[in-house]
Simulated assay, not measured.
Amino acid sequence: MAVMDAQPGTTGPAGLIARLRAKLTGGSSEASLTRRLAGTIFVIRVISAGLAYVSQVLLARWMGTSDYGVYVYVWTWVLLLGSMMDFGISASAQKIIPEYRTSGEQALLRGFLSGSRWLTFAVSTLVSLALAGIVKLLSPWIDPAEELPLYIGCMTLPAFVVANTQDGIARSHDWMQLGLMPQFIIRQALIIGLTAAAFLLGYHLGAVAAMVASAGAVWIAMTGQMLVLNRKLADHIGPGPKAYDIRGWLAISLPILLVESFYMLLSYTDVLVLQQFRPSDEVGVYFAVVKTLALVSFIHYAMSATTAHRFAEYNALGDKARLSAYVAHAINWTFWPSLAATIVLLAL
């Protein structure tokens, strides 16, 4: 170490910056790759949060707080149900795909890459039709201002669910931008663009118009993501027979769904319950403010999205030492940045 410290170019500010850059982004090691991918995810989520704040401010001003509260209420239902209606396959993809790759089961891999999306689309479509029927049955007890936006929300769910599934597939191949940008950047930008166009053209921008714009944004972003993902998969995996182990997929996915469902309930129940007790305008204000705390959770999201499929891969290989070291690395790069972000938020 003494010899290395004495080498030219490693002392002074320039050397410190070089070492810091090498630690954070340099090299080709798995740890460096993980940090780069996690950094990419974090940047995407921060940009998404910025777009979400902009859209909340603009929609609240263009729509009025009451209509905005109705929109937030319906959109929260879409987020909650859409995140659960894929049976946990978007998360289990990060276990299933690496295991199929490691074991060389190409037929099952090809089957999962296409069959998982068809499965989630078919089931989410049926569930959406059933939910629309429930809205119809409960219409005498539902606020008339909420009824049509709820129907539009039901139409949004299949595309939302397929986009989640494609996100899991893309992240399992380290295609983080393809997995996250359609949902967190493109979709948000489309919602802002479509609602702004309606507002500038003089249309009444109520909860119905905002939900139509949101549904269109979800379907457009999902379709574009599907086209790019299919092209990349075709370049990455050769054509051949497909095998479908739906029972095996669900055996892995449903326990994950159970855990994630409780997490989703914790994330969204506050808005859904608040709507039953407070006016819609207060719900809109609450929703806009409370999401500030989500900034810290982006760090955990970035690391988990980057590392989950590698945990599965190392476990499948039986490389316990490598797995243990990688887990320790993931913990360190989750805890310390989260602590720093929390301190910054408290200071602000």
Rank of each mutant, 00 (worst) to 15 (best):
T25P: 00
G111E: 10
L113K: 07
I47H: 00
I47P: 00
D86F: 07
S83M: 09
E99V: 14
I97P: 02
T34H: 13
I44A: 11
V70W: 06
R35H: 07
L113S: 08
E99F: 00
L24E: 02
G50M: 04
L119M: 13
I97M: 04
M63K: 09
F42K: 02
G82F: 08
L59F: 14
K95M: 10
Y73E: 10
S28G: 12
G26C: 05
G115Q: 07
A130S: 12
L81M: 09
A145Q: 14
T34I: 05
R45Q: 12
P98K: 04
I89A: 00
L137N: 01
P149F: 12
G133H: 10
V72G: 02
S128A: 15
Y100P: 02
M155A: 15
W62D: 13
S128Q: 04
C154Y: 06
L24H: 02
I152W: 13
I152T: 09
I152V: 15
V57M: 11
V46F: 09
A122F: 11
A91R: 10
G69L: 04
G82E: 07
V46R: 01
P144V: 11
K23P: 00
L126H: 02
L79K: 05
P140W: 08
T156N: 06
S114L: 12
L58A: 12
A31N: 14
I134L: 15
L126F: 14
E99C: 06
V135I: 15
I41S: 15
